[in-house]
Design a protein around this nucleic acid. Structure first.
Lengths: 243, 243
DNA sequence: GTGGTCAAGTGGTAAGACCAGTTGCGATCG
DNA sequence: CGATCGCAACTGGTCTTACCACTTGACCAC
């Protein structure tokens, strides 16, 4: 029995999740006002500061708009939310959303090669050396989860090499969304373990400073994973539809 | 004298900004503990709940980590922050950060064509019709700011057509970063006003459902703006270096 | 050295009061 | 009669104080 760290949930965490679910599920309609803080505190049986902390956090993500003196109104999260919301949408209630998962794969396939191209232009041999080191650790790995973590480390270096804050922040958001689901996804990607050749080719293109080759090589790195995940998501959706 | 809406800043807003600046500027070193909430409240001359609200919001963005019973520690925002932080980084203290601005342009040039390709595959003629309507409004516009806003509307439709939540959220984050700087940028992009032809070509590719053409057309839409902004940023950086 | 205990410090929650804006209704004035 | 002003009754914003829950580290007994 693998002991897991216990998850403590504070009251405001709980309220935060309830509000988030309400907005995303549409129970809280965009444009409609939220109950007042005092009312929420009363209904939920908690203190007003606890409600406020949850509301402030929800407002920080753009899901609601609070106006001093006026009512707090729900916003359309598809319009107002930023990429930071992705982790909370991809896996909700312990379940993976297949449609969103597919969207993540698409974005990865689109953005990844661009990052590789920038990294090839700016990274230099130092970056390539770091990538080679990760590849060495990959060759020594048989565990699917450890493999995926190394793949993330590999991309982490690549993003650093691209030297672009926007791509860095995008990557952080995507990684935060990806990591909780990693154990589940690693099982689907078990066949990938040991396939280091694409990673080597990409590292070589980086070392050569060849942006176009790097772009193509990155695509080759991402494609097998993308296809495996897409078929897995499709299977997940049909099984859900049957229920 | 053009009257502007007054900006009300609450106490917790003020603290939030101070903490954010501290983390981003490095005054608050990553890994180091923050002063306790009681101490912060004392030093800042405000109540503890106000401090807590600011801290919770900062924690929501990933800049600090709070642990019940333990100290609240600063995190490396380059590692921990998501794309939602971009608006706060791009324009800080009323000034535009040229390096980050360049990064935004790069990301836009990389992601935009991908969105256009997806939109061509999924949008259909309904999307093209909507785009045409925006184009019509663009032709009737001489004001640079209004033009930029229409360009954003155009992309908004495109992102909708791509039918990808991740790209939608990315776009929202980028737009939130972009919009506050729009008046300043519009001046740089004044020459663009009236150049609707690239937009028409892209709309045509969307209507035809031709992803490859749409990708190229999107690139043609973005390139002139990108070049103009990059040169402007370069000039901005040299002028800053002189100071 | 191992484990247990305890005190001090930290964040988490609660209650109540008051300040500061917004809204809408009704009295008032033209 | 209609437009306007002003006053209540909301709303969120802040403060104070107290206590609970958790972590840490020092100390002590085994």
């Amino acid at each position: 029995m693998p002991l897991r760290p216990v998850t403590r949930r504070s009251v405001s965490d709980e309220v935060f999740d309830q509000l988030l679910d309400g907005v995303v599920d549409g129970d809280l309609v965009a444009g409609e006002p939220l109950p007042s803080e005092r009312r929420l505190a009363e209904v939920l049986g908690i203190s007003r500061p606890a409600v406020r902390e949850a509301l402030q956090r929800i407002a920080q993500t753009g899901l609601v708009e609070v106006r001093h003196g006026g009512a707090t109104t729900v916003r359309d999260f598809r319009r107002a939310a930023g990429l930071d919301l992705l982790p909370r949408l991809l896996v909700r209630g312990g379940r993976l959303d297949a449609a969103i998962g597919r969207s993540v794969i698409e974005a990865r396939a689109e953005v990844g090669p661009g990052i590789a191209a920038l990294a090839a232009t700016r990274g230099g041999p130092g970056l390539a050396a770091g990538l080679d080191e990760v590849i060495d650790r990959m060759t020594a790995t048989a565990d699917a989860i450890a493999w995926q973590e190394l793949a993330l480390d590999y991309w982490d270096l690549l993003v650093d090499g691209a030297d672009s804050l926007v791509f860095r922040l995008m990557y952080n958001s995507l990684r935060t969304a990806y990591e909780p689901a990693l154990p589940a996804l690693a099982a689907v990607l078990a066949d990938e373990v040991g396939q280091v050749e694409p990673y080597r080719l990409l590292a070589a293109a980086i070392r050569a400073g060849d942006a176009q080759t790097a772009r193509a090589a990155a695509s080759r790195v991402l494609t097998p994973t993308a296809e495996a995940l897409l078929t897995a998501f499709a299977a997940l959706e049909t099984s859900e539809a049957e229920q």
